[in-house]
Design a protein around this nucleic acid. Sequence first.
DNA 1: TTCCGTTCTTGTCATATGGCAACTGCCTTT
DNA 2: AAAGGCAGTTGCCATATGACAAGAACGGAA
Lengths: 192, 192
Amino acid sequence: MSKQPLIDFFQKNSDMSLQTIINITNHFEDRRFLKNEFLLREGKVSDLLYLADGLMRAYTFDLKGDEVTTNFFAKGRQVFDHASFFLQTPSEENIQAVTDCIGYSITFEKMNTVFHSIPEFREYGRRMLVKELVSYKKRTLAMINKTAEQRYEDLIKDDKEIFQSAQLKHIASYLGVTNSSLSRIRREFSRH
Amino acid sequence: MSKQPLIDFFQKNSDMSLQTIINITNHFEDRRFLKNEFLLREGKVSDLLYLADGLMRAYTFDLKGDEVTTNFFAKGRQVFDHASFFLQTPSEENIQAVTDCIGYSITFEKMNTVFHSIPEFREYGRRMLVKELVSYKKRTLAMINKTAEQRYEDLIKDDKEIFQSAQLKHIASYLGVTNSSLSRIRREFSRH
DNA sequence: TTCCGTTCTTGTCATATGGCAACTGCCTTT
DNA sequence: AAAGGCAGTTGCCATATGACAAGAACGGAA
């Protein structure tokens, strides 16, 4: 029973009883990923992973064929392609381990079974979706009314783990700038 | 019984039986808005509105105190602040009628009652949330790897209603550019 | 250690967009 | 018709960021 981090997570993020939580976590499988290993590949259907430790990165390709990092997932977050998981459609993105990772995963089918039998978990699932939606909304807004430098500042303030483990080129495309622009932004930034 | 547009909408966007749909639509209230009237004001809790006709606009303010249009809602869409509605928290944005509007609204409380009694409707609600999430994701990506001109082209191609009724300054902040930049983009664009 | 490939930085120049102010055109009020 | 206000356009210049290429730094493989 090494599911303790997952149990802690649900205790912190829902009002479900411990009994209910243990019942739920029993449906999750232990998973390990080495650095660079894939959780999800384009074209496959996404499972959901609770990331207990490590850092993951989601990416896709732009029209020129260059990689664009669409998201980073630090430990304590749920990692999945929302559309692919909830609608059970092929994923348009790849999700890869940036560092070695440990987590617990569940398929949509199982998740749905649990949803049906435990209304509070259904409620929790909805909350989670809404929170994801809010964070994308914030990010869209940040792209509109913040400079690349401000977005960089926000990232190193709020998401230290990303900043420490991810490659700069991946951070650059996540922030919406080129490698060289990010490099210059960092130079300015380090001069205070 | 003027709920026909709402009934049509659910018939097109879900697998629910007509009987179930009529049952659901009975919980919605008829609503009318004059141009410039507000559906939602900052600080209030959002209801959900199915927009049968007209155009609405959501906006908030940036750090300088300038309006930023965060979304347009054309007829046939559901209009609400997702976070405020689903989490029942005060809204951070305003939603205003751009043209005269007709629609049907429901409170979260009623919606929730219906969710509890009709599992297919719950399923429909989840799909809706995921679709909203996907569209924000796309928009974030567009901000990263498309130019303002491409975003403008996409808008006039995919959302003609917005383009026809909304003010250019509102379209500009939605696209993430200034009024004058949009003006120049339009000039270039009209020269083919 | 040496070599090689990748990541990151930097220089130079080009381009997109912003900021501001003036001007135009349209609508409303009187 | 005149006056005022707001939306939109345009000109001018400043700034942010991109594109590309060269060099520096670092790490893994032999």
